[in-house]
Design a protein around this nucleic acid. Sequence first.
DNA 1: CGTCAATGTTTGATACGTCAATAATACAGT
DNA 2: ACTGTATTATTGACGTATCAAACATTGACG
Lengths: 155, 155
Amino acid sequence: MNACSVRLQIFLQLQAVNKELCSKFESCLGASPSRIEILHYLLQHEEVTQSALQGEVNIDAAAVTRHLKQLEAAGTIVRYKKANDQRATWVKLEEEAKRHIQQSFHEKSQFVDETLAGFSDAELEQFLQMLSKVSENVSLVTKKQLGGENHEPNV
Amino acid sequence: MNACSVRLQIFLQLQAVNKELCSKFESCLGASPSRIEILHYLLQHEEVTQSALQGEVNIDAAAVTRHLKQLEAAGTIVRYKKANDQRATWVKLEEEAKRHIQQSFHEKSQFVDETLAGFSDAELEQFLQMLSKVSENVSLVTKKQLGGENHEPNV
DNA sequence: CGTCAATGTTTGATACGTCAATAATACAGT
DNA sequence: ACTGTATTATTGACGTATCAAACATTGACG
C-alpha cells in the first residue's frame, strides 16, 4: 500500500480485472475468451489459414491447433488443405454453427456492455487509448531488453 | 472491426495487454506475476496464514499451496503451525530471501514504470479508477446472473 | 536431382490455474 | 464426551497456455 504506489496498483489491478473478466465471461457464456476470439475472427473472415489466425488472436500456434481440433471434432468448423500448398491448413466455420454463433454473439455483447457500464463514450475512447499505450510500452520494454543481471529461479 | 465497436475492442485489448504484460514480465523478471504478488505481499506482512494470503492475491487456494510448497523447497519461505490452531499454516519469508527480494523489487518497479511511461499522474489515477470500475461492474454481472439460456459446449 | 533453408502444423514436456473431493482440526450444542 | 458443522490445507483430475522439438511440404540453388 506504499512505495511503487499507483503504478504498481495499476499493474495488480490489471491482472485482477482480467482474471475476473475471464472467469465471469466463461461462466456466463460457456466458452473461454480465447475460443471466442477465434470464433469472432472466423465469423468475420470466412476462410483463413491457421497461421494467419494465430497471428491475429494472440495465442501460441500449439494452442490454436488444439482449439481447432476440438472445434472440428464438435462440428463447429471444417479444416482442409489446398492443392497449391499442402502445408497450410485452412479453417472455415460450418454454416450451421455460423448462425448459431451470431446469435450467441448478441448475448456476448450484452456481457461486454455491462462490464463497461457507466463509462461515457469519451471515457471509453480514452480507456482504449490507455490500454493501447501500455501495450506499446510493453513491446518497447522487450526491445530494450531491460538489463537482465539477476535471473535466479525463485526470486 | 465493426459492431460492438469500442467496447469489444476494449475487451480484447484488455486481454491482449494482460497477456503481453505477463509474458514480458516473466521473461524480464524470472518469476510469474502470481508468484511476485505472493512475494510482494509477504514482503509487507512478515507473517501470514495461507488463507489470508489467498484472500489477498486473487488465486485459488490450491494454487497458493503449490506455489508455497515450491517456495519452501527453494528455501525462500518457511511454513509452520501455531499452537492455538493446528489447521492454519503460517508463512514467512526467510531473512536472506527477504533482502534478495527487496533488491529484485527495485528492478520490478522499473519494469512497471516503463510499461506506464508517458502517463501523467492524473492519467494514472484515472486509469486505476477505470480498472476498478470495471472490476466492480464485473462482480455486479455475476450477481445479476445474466440470463443463461444458451449453454452448449462449443459456441 | 539432392540438399538446404523456410514455412506451417503438430506433438510432448511442463507450468499454472480451476474445481471437487478429502483430511485434519476446531468448536458449539446437546 | 459425542456429534455435526465450519475452517484450513492438500490432493487429484482436468483444461489450457507456453516452449522446444519433430515433421511434412515447399522452393531455391548448385
